[in-house]
Design a binder for these strands. Structure first.
Lengths: 125, 125
DNA sequence: GCCATTTGTCCAACATCGTAAGGTAAATCA
DNA sequence: TGATTTACCTTACGATGTTGGACAAATGGC
């Protein structure tokens, strides 16, 4: 397979979270990082686990069980890291997203740069 | 409906194509523009029509039948334009994509700006 | 008028991805 | 021991992506 299949949006988000978290990437931390990246929209924990499973099936991430830690409720975590394939898929996906962004920004920039910039983040009935 | 549902990737692509094509947006031209935006990956015509249908159901685009044109095989086309809701959804979706791009670029920038820039800098600008 | 060709739309069916809801397990602490 | 905390996993379903081909309307040559 020369090119990895293109990622879904949520898959992209989860991979990005793992990319950021480095050594501390496991279900719960990934979930909260994804939540942070996704903005105001609520993200369920189950969604994260399901997606991690599918990413692992596709060989984009690898996982292993850590030892328990001596804290209250500190049971063993399943830690994740990006595989080479995953990094590459994320890279391609990010570049593709950027390209779309550039096109959209250019079109909008020509037509309505001013009003668009002013209204940033507001609700316009 | 305060916030439009977030767009899928292909939906985003199709809306972008309509945004670019303006007056000349119908099935076939949208398909070829989407193909152009999607890069090397093959895009089927059917995928475009199905997605246009769903976007219209959601009120993000509107369509109407044009008159036939006097060319060989020039039958009536179903033309599309962005609705206000669609423009807004595309805008939010683009901003979200940009945010992810920024995060990824920053992380990668710290670790491997040089090699990465060499590989992608020419085509990506 | 036929019929091949070109341009174009549309649908059914299946694959993949996103999401909610709830269940299970292992650790600490009183 | 049982309550609490932290964590993982499964099932099921809705939304989106994708394929493949059917159908329809125009022209142009005969």
């Amino acid at each position: 397979m020369a090119r990895p299949d293109s990622l879904g949006q949520f898959e992209q988000l989860v991979l990005t979270a793992i990319l950021i978290l480095l050594e501390d990437a496991y279900g719960v931390t990934i979930h909260s990082k994804v939540q942070e990246l996704a903005g105001p929209k609520a993200v369920s924990l189950g969604a994260v686990y399901v997606t991690l499973d599918r990413l692992e099936d596709k060989g984009l991430v690898a996982s292993w069980m850590s030892d328990p830690t001596p804290e209250r409720g500190g049971r063993a975590k399943r830690c994740y890291r990006l595989e080479a394939l995953g990094e590459r898929a994320l890279q391609e996906s990010a570049v593709a997203a950027k390209r779309i962004w550039d096109v959209i920004a250019e079109v909008w920039g020509k037509e309505r740069a001013k009003e668009w910039g002013k209204r940033w983040g507001k609700e316009a009935g």
